[in-house]
Design a protein around this nucleic acid. Structure first.
Length: 193
DNA sequence: GTTCTAGAAC
DNA sequence: GTTCTAGAAC
């Protein structure tokens, strides 16, 4: 029996092959000049490899911060720089953007999504994709900053809450339309553009 | 996070 | 019969 640890190194395997685990993919993208949009001494902006809207960037710190649950009051300056980049990108862009974090991120290194509200993309495929940007699973940048300033940390979402949010029935983010399935939602989104 | 695909839903 | 979703991935 062979298991795979988080570093992507197969263990219990006689000729263990070194392969990068998918959850570390953002660290690779940060070093890839084709992905990087801009960078400063504190942060890097990359294009999301599988964009879920016409515009979809990720903002990551240069420092090795695992996720939002590692944030504290010492990171307020960093978060404010995240906000400045968000403002800057919005000024450069005609599409309306929103910025925020996933309550339960799948990949390592803290990352803030900056995504346009159209949600039109071939990479948007599942209910989970939809609900991670359109329910309370998406923690708006402003809310996270406020929470850090007030409490010094982000409150964790319970497993039950997480499950409930992902199971939320499909609901258009721009009107009251409730599609029966993903293809119907994707078709409907085109009518808003 | 994605890909693949079995079986549910239609 | 086709479309769509959801769970495994060694």
């Amino acid at each position: 029996m062979s298991k795979r640890n988080i570093t992507g190194v197969k263990t219990g395997d006689t000729n263990a092959k070194k392969t990068k685990h998918w959850s570390l993919g953002l660290l690779e993208s940060m070093k890839d000049s084709n992905s990087v949009v801009k960078s400063t001494d504190k942060l890097v902006v990359i294009r999301d490899k599988y964009p879920k809207a016409k515009i979809h960037y990720l903002v990551l710190p240069q420092d090795d911060i695992t996720n939002i649950y590692k944030l504290n009051k010492a990171h307020i300056n960093l978060l404010e720089e995240f906000g400045n980049i968000y403002k800057q990108l919005q000024e450069e862009e005609t599409y309306s953007l929103k910025a925020g974090f996933h309550a339960v991120p799948s990949m390592f290194r803290l990352h803030m999504h900056i995504i346009s509200k159209d949600m039109i993309s071939p990479c948007l495929k599942t209910k989970i994709h939809w609900n991670s940007f359109t329910t309370a699973f998406f923690l708006p940048y402003e809310d996270v900053l406020k929470e850090i300033k007030l409490n010094g940390s982000v409150k964790k979402v319970s497993h039950e809450q997480h499950k409930a949010l992902m199971a939320t029935e499909l609901q258009c983010n721009q009107c009251s339309y409730k599609p029966k399935n993903m293809p119907q939602l994707k078709e409907h989104l085109l009518s808003h553009s």
